[in-house]
Design a protein around this nucleic acid. Structure first.
Lengths: 263, 263
DNA sequence: GCACTTGTATCGGACAGCAATACAGCATGT
DNA sequence: ACATGCTGTATTGCTGTCCGATACAAGTGC
């Protein structure tokens, strides 16, 4: 094997404050990201690059702490409930989520369509909160679900507030996945949408993530003007013509963002 | 102070598979449970019983991994976005949540009121999913939020399926908090509700968590017949007389649970 | 300007955690 | 029925990771 021990260049090495065991432990939890079901020790070891022994010890520890559990068939492990406690603490203590929640609720009352809050992590848009409407599409979009920034109305809105260089970095990062037949995957086309968004102050995405759905997104900047999140409002194309939807919803969404802002 | 180092009796000691650093790390994340805002190193150290040095190293590591971040004023730390990735993986991979989601959606379409799924962890009911209705009460109930088992309709339904001894353990554990003026805090009164629930197959809770709200809960057992979760349906007392609500909703909820069950 | 925060950095010794290895139980396929 | 792969579990002696006291720079509020 003989991996060169000398090239990390980044950080993990020779950082006297860095606790290896903890980092290894977190990679175990992260291993479930690409999983489709329970993971065995061997699978965890493979995904994390750890020894089976290491995986065993880490998993053992997580089990004692409650974060992992032996799956019902005894042939693997799954994340367990205490994870949700962390979720709750994160959402509860996040200042943006705190400020946005009542506003989103009010917004949903007015537009009577689904309202989402997603957070920008520099790469993806991660759903943090959802206010549903009556007719519902998919449950699939759970808290913590994430989609590429380039594929959602909120992502476009965020991109429109970023300097060109960062937009390039994100668009050129990975190829953009084709989620629906109408998802724009050509960076140039997306740049076009971004330009439109800059003019309008909001983005309108038609069937980018789900066929039959139109979504309007507005970015939320932090105190320094950097976009850190977005509001989405989503509705059905069977009930709205896109332009009508935009005219009706855009002012409300903009107003909502305004009242979320620090000032 | 002088805590005796020799009595643990439980396990943490002399367990050769137990990774101390990892456990310590997790206590750092858990320290935010009782927090009202960012925590400083000293606060973390105090809450976890760690040295300030240990807290520093742990926090440093979590920061490099992204799970913690320096709060905007630079005077403390907060949980950060990657937490939500874990959330998503947990929900996505949880077999019960998977099976229940489409059923809950269907249920909400029928009753047109708020539908929740909460998971029983042996002590509390932890909210895992929520399908909202139009008129909304509080946003407060986020994913991961938990309430004492003794205080919700779903909790009563769960208790009704547990052996007496375990019910006693839960009811006598801590004193039951008075959440609303009408919250039942007397264990005897709650035992009465549990008995009722056994007869009916569902629990009906009136203003136990929120004034003006009535909720009906049905427990979900696992393959061995142990209750592991509950469905709640919540509505406003301004629109429903409790008995009407029960008659209308109970059969639908029971049917929903039936179609979630493994069989 | 002092006293008290905050986060950050350093360092030698000790013990926590390392990986290899062995084991029991259960499938699957031969 | 036996063998071979997989599960999760348990033990052990060596080593290098992590420990925590201590010192530091910066900021806040008296």
């Amino acid at each position: 094997m003989m991996q060169q021990k000398s090239e990390p260049a980044s950080s993990e090495d020779d950082d006297p404050l860095f606790i290896q065991s903890l980092a290894r432990g977190m990679t175990v939890l992260e291993a479930f990201r690409q999983a489709e079901g329970p993971l065995s020790l061997a699978q965890i070891a493979a995904r994390t690059g750890l020894t089976r022994s290491a995986a065993q010890r880490l998993v053992h520890t997580f089990r004692k702490l409650g974060y992992l559990t032996l799956s019902e068939d005894g042939r693997g492990f799954r994340l367990d409930l205490p994870i949700l406690d962390l979720t709750h603490d994160y959402l509860r203590l996040n200042p943006l989520v705190r400020r946005a929640s009542p506003v989103l609720l009010e917004l949903r009352r007015n537009v009577r369509e689904r309202v989402d809050l997603s957070l920008f992590d520099g790469r993806r848009m991660v759903y943090a909160a959802r206010m549903q409407s009556k007719r519902e599409t998919f449950f699939a979009t759970l808290v913590g679900n994430s989609v590429p920034t380039a594929c959602t109305s909120g992502g476009w809105a965020v991109l429109a507030m970023l300097p060109e260089a960062e937009v390039d970095a994100i668009l050129d990062d990975h190829p953009i996945p084709q989620i629906t037949p109408r998802t724009l995957t050509d960076p140039a086309a997306i740049r076009g949408q971004i330009a439109l968004t800059r003019e309008n102050g909001h983005a309108l995405a038609i069937e980018q993530i789900l066929m039959g759905e139109v979504a309007l997104g507005v970015a939320i900047p932090d105190a320094d003007g950097r976009p850190i999140a977005a509001i989405h409002i989503a509705a059905s194309l069977s009930e709205w013509a896109p332009e009508d939807f935009r005219r009706r919803v855009a002012p409300l969404a903009a107003e909502a963002v305004r009242s979320i802002l620090p000032g």
